Amino acid sequence: MEGAAIQGDSRDNLIIQKACELVGKFDWIITSPPYYGLRTYLPDQWIRNWFLGGPSVVDYTSEGQLSHNGRDRFIADLRQVWANVGARCRPGATLVIRFGSIGDRLVEDPAQLVSASLEETGWVTTEILHADNAARGRRQADTFHRKRSAPYDEVDVWAKWRP
């Protein structure tokens, strides 16, 4: 079985097309998009991106990232991702999305937000599972913040591609 790890903005259809050229149509997509309201996703992941060939300096701009300027805009951006990856999947492919919340956006249930983003994309939600929270591992927030907060529970949303 072959696979591909994609580093790039999946709203851009060319990113998905390039990965598909390497391995053919997809049977599985496993992802964890930035949680709603997390504007520092890329800077927070700087060292991981650097190991994958990214820049050697931290870029704190948010240009080009998923929009966090409102629920509807965020959902529309995610919907573009799901449509793009779905177009490169075999019928019956599986999508697994790990998603959660951040402190200032707890008014939104993560499972409802992801489910709304999947509507009208060809992806059908088949299961939503409680995925616990980051307290079981080492949280970056615990390492770098003086005031520790409790992590929020995350969900795994499973969907099937049914165009």
Rank of each mutant, 00 (worst) to 15 (best):
D77C: 12
T61I: 10
N49I: 04
L66A: 03
N84R: 12
R105S: 14
A76E: 07
F26S: 12
V107D: 15
S67N: 10
G70Y: 03
A87Q: 15
H68Q: 14
W82G: 05
V107K: 15
I29N: 07
F51H: 15
C20D: 01
I75S: 04
V57C: 08
Y60V: 12
R73L: 09
I29W: 06
F51N: 13
R48T: 07
T40D: 08
N69R: 02
W50P: 02
T61D: 09
K25A: 00
P55Y: 03
R79L: 00
L66C: 04
L22I: 03
A87E: 10
C20Y: 00
V107F: 14
S67K: 12
G24T: 06
R90G: 02
S67E: 07
L42Q: 03
R71N: 05
L78I: 07
S62K: 03
Q45H: 14
R39M: 12
R105C: 13
D44T: 07
I75R: 09
L78E: 01
S32Y: 08
T61Q: 04
V23G: 10
I30Y: 11
P43E: 01
V107Y: 12
R73Q: 14
V23F: 03
G53H: 08
G92H: 06
L78D: 00
F74Y: 15
L22P: 04
L106V: 08
L38R: 00
S67W: 07
P43I: 14
A93G: 04
S56H: 13
W46R: 06
R73P: 02
G37H: 04
G86I: 02
W46F: 11
T94M: 11
P34D: 08
F51M: 14
L106P: 00
G24A: 04
S67L: 13
R88H: 14
R88I: 00
K25P: 01
F51C: 13
D77V: 14
N69S: 14
